[in-house]
Design a protein around this nucleic acid. Structure first.
Lengths: 125, 125
DNA sequence: ATACAATGTAGAGTGAACTCTATGTCAAGA
DNA sequence: TCTTGACATAGAGTTCACTCTACATTGTAT
């Protein structure tokens, strides 16, 4: 299947402007039809879903662009790409660990608040 | 203990400029000494560590500012503050869940890459 | 034929969170 | 006394990732 930018925007949940911006930044390079309209494929769809994943896990556009360039260069860059993903996984694991630590502290804080509110209520009897 | 902005910067790992910016944005309000220099206390230290936690878990400055205002208003805002934290905990839990989902997918992708590299190597024998 | 909706490009604008520059004050050491 | 370094304010500049505007073009419905 092929999609116009409008259709692709709906499929991906990314705005039309954002899709053009991503193209400009070198993240994605859809085909063009006879009259110069962008023509996104199912491969583009899979690819953009992966881009979203990288973005959501904190990879900056520049780095995704680099990954996209390696990808466009073909099989010879497979191990370099894997290396990037392994590094990114490492960063992601650390990020998750940090957030879990924060969650614990936040739970404690909320617990403290509970007691504090209780205390204040009793004091004001 | 009391700290100059330079000392406080080192203690917190936040730049001097950033500390002044946070003050301007209403996140923190250090005392001033006789000659108008900022004079951070240990309470400020605890507070800024909490601010960092909120920031690291994705709370925007505006919202932290709101929390700071409630905090400054005293005990009467305790339950409202707790409400904010409970909401934030909810967001944090969702964020962690999303990242864990992403991690699984990334693991799969890396596994796929492993196989692909293996395959390409064999093809090129 | 004409109107319209979607698309195209180029470039400006936005908002968040810093980060830096210019300029001035002031206490302490050589 | 002179210089140095840390501090002060006000405001400009930066980076990121969009998001929007202006204007031109084109395929489709009336």
């Amino acid at each position: 299947m092929e999609y116009s930018i409008g259709e692709f925007s709906k499929l991906t949940g990314l705005g039309i402007h954002t899709l053009r911006y991503y193209e400009q930044e070198g993240l994605i390079a859809p085909e063009r039809n006879s009259c110069n309209r962008r023509c996104y494929s199912d491969k583009d769809l899979t690819w953009i879903e992966f881009i979203k994943r990288l973005k959501d896990t904190g990879m900056p556009i520049k780095e995704i662009k680099h990954y996209a360039e390696l990808r466009a260069a073909g099989d010879s860059t497979l191990s370099e790409r894997m290396e990037m993903l392994v590094q990114h996984r490492q960063a992601l694991n650390e990020q998750i660990a940090r957030l879990q630590e924060h969650k614990i502290k936040l739970d404690e804080k909320i617990e403290f608040y509970s007691n504090e509110i209780e205390r204040v209520n009793n004091t004001n009897l």
